[in-house]
Every structure is written in structure tokens, then in C-alpha cells.
Amino acid sequence: MIKNLNGRIAWIFDEPNFDIDLVVGVTNMKIQDIEKLKDLCMINYDLDFKNQVREGDIIIGGENFGYGHPHYPSCRALRALGIKGIIAESFSPGFYRGESTNGFPLIECKGVVETADCWDRFIYDWDTEELNFIDKGIILKSERVPEKTKELIVHGDIITYLQKRRLTP
């Protein structure tokens, strides 16, 4: 059982093929310090993002979100600021594999860019796989979420998942 996502839409990247490295900046990929990454997060888009975002918020993405050679620091920074997932029209497969393995909720949902506005409140129900825009009265059905992706979210990371589900006799 996965707890529903429930929060606000903190940002919308509506362009296709968005390179996730841009969230903290492509020149900052070697930075490991999470406080530095939090400071860099989204500064090229909104200098106040760090202060406005709160626990439970999500990001919306366009088609083929995560295209390119995705690295991990950007999503680490987003998670550290409280972002609980990304809902996009579609994901680039390399990005999807990498971040879903980190237990980060990634949901593909057609029509989300057109429907969403910044700071909309929403609930995503993992059982019905429906995205509910509470204030707009609009419900979008997402693509099916693979079982392994759901298990990784439940367990939080690949190591715990392997320990509990694959390596236990």
C-alpha cells in the first residue's frame, strides 16, 4: 500500500525533452553536498523556489522528460526540498529507470501539462492511478505504473527492496 501523493504543483516544465541536469545546472554535477545542491536547485528558474516549496509538492513535466545524459544531483536536491515526485506527459527511459530505482515517484499522465497550473492542489491515488486536481474538479487517468516501481516506492530504495523482496529466502 503506497500513501497517496497529496500536495501542490510547485513547477511546470512544459517543454519537451527537458534535461534534468538543468535543475541544479549542468556544471554542478560533481557536487555531493546536499546543502549546496539545495541552494542551487531551480535558481535559474525561480530564485525563491527554495522558500516557496514545501513537503509534499511535486513537479510537472512535458514529453520525454529527462532526455539526454541524466545525472542524480538534481532529483536529490528536489527531494531534499520536499518534492515528492514528478508527473510528466512521458519520461525518457534512462531517467525513469534511474530515479524510480531511487524510490522517487515518477508517473506518466497524458494531458497533465495542459491541465496543471502552478500551485494547483492535487491528490494522486496509486490504487486507481488517478490524478485529481482538487480545486478544478478534473481527474486524469495516468499510465499504468509498473509493479517494481511501486515496490521501490514502498521500500524507499533498491537495497531495501532487494533485501525484503528478492534476497529473502
Binding site: 530505482t101 537495497i159 528478492r166
Partner: peptide, 30 residues
């Protein structure tokens, strides 16, 4: 993902990023 190079020989090479530990630990991938 550039392991896809081997596709030229009729094989499938797939980049699975950080779920490689699944392959190392279980010799299987979901």
C-alpha cells in the same frame, strides 16, 4: 546505455543505470 552498440550483432544491450545492483546481486533484472 551505450552498450546498445552490440545491437549490430543481433543482441540487445540495455543500460539499466543504478538498478545494476539488482543484476549484480540476483543475476536477474525486472
Amino acid at each position: 546505455g551505450h552498450i546498445s552498440t552490440i545491437g549490430a550483432l543481433g543482441a540487445i544491450g540495455m543500460g539499466i543505470r543504478n538498478s545494476m545492483i539488482e543484476a549484480f546481486a540476483t543475476e536477474q533484472v525486472s
